[in-house]
Amino acid sequence: MLLGCVMLPLLGVPLSPDEWTRLALIVAAGILYFGAFLTIGIAVSAMTVRSSSAFLGLLVFWIFAVLILPRSAILIAGRAVDVPSLDDINAKKFRYSEQLFAEDRQKMAGFTPSKSGDMRKMVEEFQKFMGAIGDERQKKMDDFSGRLNEERANRQAVQSTVALGIARVSPSVSFSLAATTLAGTSLSMKDRYLQAARGYQQTFGKFMLDKTGMNSGGGMVFRIRTGDAEKPAPIDTHELPAFVDRPAMLADVLPPALTDLALLALCIMVFFAVAHAAFRRYDLR
């Protein structure tokens, strides 16, 4: 493990002090996990007479802890909490979007400019009209999508809580969760990134609105050009706000990881107590 840590800077992987601390905690979690299996081994050894029986018992325990329990927990959680599939959600979104667009097409067909004759003003008026109905449609769609996504995310969260709650009976799950949480690669990684991307979407949208006076990505733009028109200068993209994906920090990941670290410590204590009690009554002959 230490050699692996030494290799990181040598292979050009720079780690910040925060990351070194998290790595140290992952190593600590590994030691706790190792300790848990060590005490389980001693406990089983103290409870059996033959080494082959102890080995067999431990192998069966290992298979249950590492292979059977985690998957069974997910199976039980899947049965207990029904999460709609993404295809279900997309189907609902699609139907609603179609409904909104059909309504807007009626409005478009009924559009009449107030001032006929002045082409430029008519186009401006039309753009304003299209922008308004586009914004309204987008808002309705965003609200609807938001509700569906939130409902799915909530159900997924409940399902995860149930699954992980059951699976944490296994020390290997506790270790796996502690390590991935500390590394910032746990289940919450996707949500964290999505949250950052959504935040950036709003910043970007506001920037575009300030810059162009219209929402990006929607509506349509009429560009009236004549032959002698001056070619527009290329845009300066340096002004664009940059997307920053804030990495997981120690302060964020430590509290959720503490539960699993505590569970591993508890596992050591419980099995040490079992080993202690079993050995006190052990027949030494």
Partner: peptide, 17 residues
Amino acid sequence: KNSTYADDTIYALFRSI
């Protein structure tokens, strides 16, 4: 695109046996 593990990340955590 849209793999099962990408859509439902909890399945990716413990993989399939």
